[in-house]
């Protein structure tokens, strides 16, 4: 027996070795996953500082001519399902820490100043599409609601229970819209009709579709966004 276990190539030792290596691979996988979130947590504050520094809150990003629109490049991504929304009863709510909470129907929203832009929509997955969007600037809606002085963030709640939170500066950017038009036609349901976020300064997962509620707050809640709560970066600025 002792003779056998001293032999480095004995069956027992080989079995033990293979056990170690399977354990090793599993351990490496687990620890790399742990380190992955640590690597993210370690540098995300630094990266966010950089992103806030780079963001020029009042400077529009250069736009494209209409001839540059790529009608087939915009891929439809949802986390779950396409919600059924009754347009006659649809209301957009703007609430939270505001002096003048709003409940707006679509006709009222379309009477507000319409803004059109041709911008690049960039997805976290790496693809991008040049799209024309038209809608109402989120800045105008926030101003109508008269936010209280301490407001620093906005939550966007969607009909499919998708949720997102943004820094106020990015919400007030002149090209952050609640869009109801895409590439010259009314916004298709798959792209987020009746109202979706559109902006050249945030990654696609920040640009919620089917938005029904904007809530202005002074502090972020523990839930910061559908993908962010699973580990994606919160600021996601471009």
């Amino acid at each position: 027996m002792s003779q056998n276990s001293n032999n480095p190539l004995s069956r027992r030792n080989l079995l033990r070795l293979s056990g170690y290596s399977v354990g090793g691979i599993l351990l490496t996988g687990v620890s790399l996953t742990l380190v992955e979130s640590l690597a993210g947590k370690a540098t995300e504050p630094l990266n966010q500082k950089l992103e806030e520094l780079l963001l020029k809150p009042q400077t529009p990003v250069p736009e494209f001519p209409e001839s540059a629109i790529e009608p087939d490049a915009l891929i439809i991504n949802t986390y779950g399902f396409t919600p059924d929304i009754d347009l006659t009863t649809f209301r957009l709510i703007v609430d939270g820490e505001v002096d003048n909470p709003l409940t707006l129907d679509l006709a009222t929203i379309q009477q507000l100043l319409r803004q059109s832009m041709v911008i690049r929509h960039v997805c976290v997955e790496g693809w991008a599409a040049i799209v024309q969007w038209a809608g109402v600037p989120v800045r105008d809606l926030i101003q109508l609601a008269k936010p209280k002085p301490g407001v620093r963030y906005a939550y966007f709640i969607s009909a499919d229970r998708y949720y997102e939170s943004w820094d106020l500066a990015s919400c007030l950017h002149p090209q952050t819209l609640l869009a109801y038009e895409k590439n010259g036609v009314p916004l298709p349901v798959d792209n987020g009709a009746p109202l979706r976020l559109a902006s050249p300064i945030k990654l696609g997962y920040k640009l919620s579709k089917w938005v029904t509620q904007i809530t202005l707050v002074s502090e972020l809640r523990s839930r910061r966004g559908f993908w962010e709560d699973q580990g994606y970066e919160w600021f996601a600025g471009l």
């Binding site: 992955e36 699973q230 580990g231 994606y232 970066e233």
Partner: peptide
Amino acid sequence: GGWLAGGRH
């Protein structure tokens, strides 16, 4: 990284 967010981290 294991997944897209991990790769980005």
